[in-house]
């Protein structure tokens, strides 16, 4: 059964294939074809016909000099990279930690985190220059890429800042309840922020995620943020200092909460550690 709208679109399929339509009209066609088998089929065929028309032109042996010009030009050009935004390299660090064991190796692992974060920060910055000039025409893509690069650079910056802070203290976190022995460390600087890295975390209860809390002397728990999952039981949090935590003894705790977190903990405690 066809509708009037279908008939309108069906009449436009050749125009679509020949490239006559405006972007809005193209979107309309694509949207309808996504739901209509007959139109989708016809459109497929029309695009193949276009392919066939393109290939019906007699191929020509290109002059040898042209090849050199083409390759020389490619050599001068930079490529647009979607994958130039580096994910934060938690995987590398935690693998190192696993291999070297816990005693005395954490600082080495943190240094590795610094190097890799610094390395990808460098790459991100270098690529940022190239990408910016190359993509100047594509405003939407640039904004998105710049935002992601900025996020990564800001995170690496904060890690460096926390680990080098004069008031930074290390807090070992232990599993609270449950049988799985997770491995986790927190680095807390009241002026710079909190870094939490965890490995061998159990899968949180269904529909729940891990949230990190700071408890100072004389106050209730304050949320430091959600523990980002790096897959395979690893978690990472890099956060600025939440307000309301004084200097002095603190406790760091990780609980499971609904997605997005809550203002106060309600779920089971998974990790805990105090100075």
């Amino acid at each position: 059964m066809t509708t009037p709208h279908h008939d309108v679109i069906a009449a436009r399929l050749s125009d679509y294939a020949l490239g006559y339509l405006t972007p809005d009209e193209r979107r309309e066609v694509e949207q309808h074809a996504g739901q209509c088998d007959a139109c989708s089929q016809e459109l497929s065929e029309l695009l193949l016909v276009m392919d066939g028309l393109a290939r019906s032109a007699e191929p020509v042996v290109p002059p040898a000099a042209l090849k050199q010009r083409v390759l020389a030009r490619l050599g001068r050009e930079t490529q647009e990279g979607v994958a130039t935004v580096q994910p934060l390299p938690g995987r590398t660090v935690v693998a190192d930690v696993r291999r070297s064991g816990w005693s005395g190796a954490w600082l080495a692992a943190a240094a590795a985190l610094l190097l890799v974060a610094g390395g990808s920060l460098y790459l991100a910055l270098e690529r940022q220059d190239r990408i910016t000039s190359e993509l100047a025409r594509v405003a939407g893509e640039i904004t998105e890429l710049q935002q992601r690069l900025g996020d990564n650079a800001a995170q690496a910056d904060m890690v460096l800042s926390i680990l080098t802070a004069q008031d930074m203290r290390r807090i070992d976190l232990a599993s609270a309840g449950g049988t799985q022995a997770s491995a986790a460390r927190a680095y807390w600087s009241p002026t710079r922020g909190l870094l939490v890295a965890a490995d061998n975390l159990p899968v949180p209860p269904p529909g729940r995620v891990y949230q990190v809390w700071l408890i100072g002397s004389g106050g209730g728990p304050v949320s430091a943020g959600m523990l980002g999952s790096l897959g395979a039981g690893r978690g990472l949090l890099i956060a600025p200092p939440p307000g309301g935590i004084s200097t002095g003894p603190v406790t760091v705790a990780v609980t499971d909460e609904p997605p997005g977190g809550l203002p106060a903990p309600t779920g089971g405690k998974h990790l805990i550690g105090s100075l």
Partner: peptide, 11 residues
């Protein structure tokens, strides 16, 4: 230009 839906080898 691409047709949504059908299997890739058809294209």
């Amino acid at each position: 230009l691409r047709a949504p839906g059908p299997s890739p080898s058809d294209q």
